[in-house]
C-alpha cells in the first residue's frame, strides 16, 4: 500500500458518497446513467467473487463497493425511479460487454473462471463510464454535484497510475492488463477533466460547448 493507492481508493470511496449525497439531497437520480451504475455492479461482482484473502482493508472495501453499487441500483430503479429518464440513457451496453468478454478470454493471467472474470472486470471497468459520459454529451450540461462525483471517480483511476509506477520501482512488479485498461480508463476522462478544471473549479456551471 502506498499513498497514491490509498488516496485513489479514498477518492473512489468519496465518489460513492458524493453520488449518494446527490441522490438524497436532490431526491433524484437525474443526470446519472443507470447503465453505468449497472456496469459497476457487474464489475465489482465479477472481480470480487475471488475470495482470496488479502487484508481486512481489502475485504471491507470489496464488501463496501459491492454493497453500495447494488444499493445505488435500488435507489435508481425503485426508490427514485420516476426521476430517471431512460430516453437519454441510450448507450448500447452490449457493445461494451461483448468485446470485454472477448478481451477477458484472450488476455488473462491464467485460463480459469476466476482469472477470466477478473480480467473481464478490469476491461469492463475501463469503459463502464462511457454511458455516463455519453449522457453528459447528449444533455450538454450537468449538475455541479454530479461533476464532483465524476471528478472523484476519475481521480481514483488517475491516482492508480503513479501507484503502478511506484510499485514498479519498489516491488519490481507490473500488471500489464490492469495498467493498459487503467490508462484507457483515465484517458476517457480527459475531456471531462478539461471542462471540470476550466469551468466547475472556476465556479461556473458545467456546460459543454454547443
Amino acid at each position: 500500500m502506498n499513498l497514491f493507492r490509498l488516496f485513489g481508493d479514498l477518492s473512489h470511496l468519496a465518489s460513492i458518497f458524493i453520488l449518494l449525497h446527490k441522490i438524497y439531497t436532490t431526491r433524484s437520480c437525474r443526470g446519472i446513467s443507470f447503465k453505468t451504475q449497472a456496469l459497476y455492479v457487474a464489475v465489482f461482482v465479477s472481480r470480487y467473487i475471488d475470495f482470496t484473502y488479502i487484508s481486512v482493508y481489502n475485504t471491507l472495501m470489496k464488501l463496501f463497493f459491492i454493497g453500495s453499487s447494488c444499493y445505488i441500483l435500488y435507489l435508481m430503479r425503485i426508490k427514485y425511479r420516476p426521476t430517471h429518464d431512460p430516453s437519454i440513457d441510450t448507450f448500447r451496453v452490449e457493445y461494451l460487454v461483448g468485446p470485454c468478454v472477448l478481451l477477458g478470454l484472450i488476455f488473462n493471467y491464467q485460463f480459469t473462471v476466476i482469472e477470466v472474470l477478473w480480467s473481464f472486470s478490469i476491461f469492463l471497468e475501463s469503459v463502464a463510464i462511457l454511458p455516463q459520459l455519453f449522457m453528459l454529451q447528449r444533455t450538454g450540461e450537468a449538475e455541479t454535484i454530479t461533476t464532483h462525483y465524476l471528478a472523484a471517480l476519475g481521480a481514483y483511476r488517475a491516482l492508480y497510475i503513479p501507484n503502478w509506477i511506484y510499485r514498479y520501482f519498489t516491488e519490481g512488479t507490473v500488471d500489464p492488463i490492469a495498467v493498459t485498461a487503467g490508462l484507457v480508463q483515465t484517458g476517457l476522462y480527459l475531456d471531462f477533466f478539461y471542462v471540470y478544471f476550466t469551468k466547475v473549479m472556476q465556479g461556473q456551471k458545467f456546460e459543454l460547448p454547443a
Binding site: N58, W118, R167, G172, T173, V174, A178
Partner: peptide, 10 residues
C-alpha cells in the same frame, strides 16, 4: 518484470 502474485488492488 513480473505481474503481481495476487490481485491485491481494488
Amino acid at each position: 518484470v513480473n505481474p503481481p502474485k495476487s490481485h491485491d488492488e481494488l
